[in-house]
Amino acid sequence: MKFNKTIAALMLATSSIAANAQQLEVTVTNLTQGMHYTPLIIAAHTADASLYKLGETASPELQAMAEGGDISGLSTMLTGVNADMVANPAGGLLAPAQSTTAMLDTADGNMYLSIASMLLPTNDAFVALNGWKIPSEAGTYKVMLNAYDAGTEANDELIIMGGGAPGTPGIPAAPGGNAGTGGTGVTSMEANTTVHVHRGNLGDDDLTGGTSDVDNTVHRWLNPVASVTIVVK
């Protein structure tokens, strides 16, 4: 696969080059008022690697993160391409309006920053930074992030035990404890099965019925959903 080539290239490239090219301090702020973020993955990698491509089908690793918050697959993939990585800097969920900071030492050549985390409660929405070129000049940089839809699961907006497993419908959890039950399902179709900008939760105003289990006055959002402050030391 593509990664094998990348690994070979990296082994050649890194054999004679100093280990640490840059030191980054990365602060991620959940800007939403009602959405939780699952454990974040923050990585610096080469231009060849990416977490996803807009308008293309999500990888199984991205799908596992977007549907269930499981970053182990992405982590393995990134390790395979010698990325520098911080997994789960918040030590669990990042609550609405909260921030977390990670220190990241990058190897020479790992000049692109990517970040990902699932939004709860959603079927397969995730917030991401995808291959942001790390400036060579020291300074403080700010980037605003949007929410994307992995395109791998219908947005039925039903909270179902086990709904986080790839291929299983449903939202695995509403950590705020403020969602409903008994919905009939917003949709069973996914019109766009590629990675795209999320249209947002629909929700409804009936916590014990209706079509959706999420609350339309609490669990909607507008972009941007996160801000990232990157300090290049």
């Binding site: 939403t32 609405p96 629909l202 006055t217 941007p224």
Partner: peptide, 13 residues
């Protein structure tokens, strides 16, 4: 925090 937008009676509230 950032505002989630208004729902309105035309969109389910």
């Amino acid at each position: 925090a950032m505002h989630p937008g208004v729902v309105t009676k035309d969109d389910g509230l």
